[in-house]
């Protein structure tokens, strides 16, 4: 019973990871690729680790698995946010079918500071606004 449960947990984790890799290979844009990879890969690692914990069924193994899951759930959004922010500053082009860019004109290009003001374009001289 526990063996079947662990096998199916590991299988669905691997399925989520395969879907994440498929999205990374097929999506048209850096940010859509990041959207595909981060969430599904985190869920996939969590499911595979849960399956391994059910398979072994020891207290030391379970503690290690919980530590890995907590660590991945804490660090994956941080790493994705830092990478997406850096890519936006570096000027990675959006997909040509993108409808709106909510951050456009709200970043000071020199200090990398976010300003959520309506009249932000008047606050900076020409050429200082990241587009």
């Amino acid at each position: 019973m526990a063996q079947d449960l662990s096998a199916w947990l590991i299988f669905f984790g691997a399925l989520f990871m395969f879907i994440a890799a498929l999205g990374v290979a097929r999506m048209p844009d850096l940010f859509t690729r990041m959207h595909s990879s981060t969430k599904s890969a985190t869920l996939g690692v969590g499911l595979i680790m849960l399956g391994a914990a059910f398979h072994f069924g020891e207290i030391g193994m379970t503690m290690r698995v919980i530590a890995i899951i907590v660590f991945v759930f804490l660090t994956a959004p941080v790493a994705a946010h830092m990478l997406g922010r850096a890519a936006y500053f570096a000027g990675v082009p959006l997909w040509e079918g993108t409808l709106s860019d909510a951050l456009r004109g709200h970043y000071d290009r020199r200090t990398h500071r976010l300003i959520s003001d309506e009249k932000v374009e008047e606050n900076f001289p020409e050429g200082d606004i990241a587009v």
């Binding site: 590991i10 990374v24 850096l30 990879s37 996939g44 399956g51 991945v72 994705a80």
Partner: peptide
């Protein structure tokens, strides 16, 4: 671009963690 490759490497590390498990 370089961030695309970094996204690929990040996902590659996650998949390798699952493979080791």
């Amino acid at each position: 671009s370089l961030p695309d490759r970094v996204v690929g490497l990040d996902l590659l590390a996650s998949v390798t963690v699952g493979l080791i498990a």
